[in-house]
């Protein structure tokens, strides 16, 4: 008997996978629906993909979202990685520092979004992509920090110490020992931050300016009449792009090991 295998976990996991994928299948399926009404299936068609190609608004919204998420998640992950390295060993005030790093999590997003808008207006910051990247970076920090920190917490510090005893300098030690061990945590953190930014509606809603509407803002403000298969189609396209991106980063991550 293998102690690492727990009864029922496999069955539950497969069930969870079904739960996770049924809506995705529905979402992708309805992007091929000829009917304009998203909830009524008539027959299969590629019309909605054609409509995206003819709709510059929806295209730029998708592009804005990807650029924003990529910039904010990268910045947040780098900042969070540095902070996680600093807090990996106990020091006086560590609890306080960690609490500060996690504040974006305990604040309702609408509050931070409105307050940030007022602050930016007071400071004369132009609304748009720059303002959104700043705000997104801030609230993405804990999403990147927590997984990296959790990974570091139980990581065996003795490897690093051993390497240093063997006269590896600190940077070399970080790059050759700590970073590879930390990589899954960094990837998890980046992924969480990216997804959080990509899906953010409220902050972008308040801080977007001319020409910088993001996809969630576009979708949320178009639901009065109802989501069209056009939105399903662009979501499917985004899904494909994201899957390619993520697969690439996982592949690169494995190369590094």
């Amino acid at each position: 008997m293998n102690i690492r295998r727990f009864p029922l976990t496999r069955e539950i996991s497969l069930l969870v996978l079904v739960y996770l994928y049924v809506p995705v299948v529905v979402l992708v399926g309805y992007s091929f629906n000829a009917n304009r009404t998203a909830t009524v299936w008539s027959h299969a068609s590629l019309d909605w993909y054609g409509r995206i190609l003819a709709n510059p608004t929806i295209q730029s919204a998708a592009k804005n979202s990807l650029v924003l998420a990529l910039c904010a998640a990268t910045a947040a992950t780098v900042i969070a990685l540095l902070a996680a390295l600093a807090t990996s060993r106990a020091f006086p005030g560590r609890g306080g520092v960690e609490a500060v790093l996690n504040t974006p999590l305990i604040l309702p997003e609408i509050v931070v979004a409105v307050a940030t808008l007022m602050l930016f207006v007071a400071l004369g910051v132009q609304l748009g992509l720059g303002a959104m990247i700043l705000a997104h970076t801030a609230f993405c920090i804990p999403f990147a920090y927590l997984p990296i920190r959790a990974r570091l917490e139980g990581m065996n510090q003795s490897f690093g110490e051993a390497a240093q005893d063997l006269y590896a300098n600190r940077f070399r030690c970080f790059r050759r020992v700590t970073l590879p061990l930390l990589w899954p945590g960094i990837m998890a953190g980046f992924t969480l931050a990216f997804v959080t930014s990509l899906d953010d509606f409220l902050t972008s809603f308040f801080l977007s300016g001319p020409g910088t509407t993001t996809l969630p803002v576009y979708i949320f403000s178009s639901i009065k009449a109802g989501i069209t298969p056009e939105i399903n189609a662009i979501s499917t396209v985004m899904l494909v792009i994201s899957v390619l991106l993520v697969s690439l980063s996982f592949f690169l991550g494995r190369l590094r090991r």
Binding site: T57, S60, V125, L127, T213
Partner: peptide
């Protein structure tokens, strides 16, 4: 370049903020 809003309140907020020039 077309952007969309969902209510007069949103439009007002954007305009009053002065930070977005449409």
């Amino acid at each position: 370049i077309l952007d969309g809003f969902d209510s007069n309140d949103t439009l007002l907020a954007k305009l009053q903020s002065g930070g977005a020039a449409y």
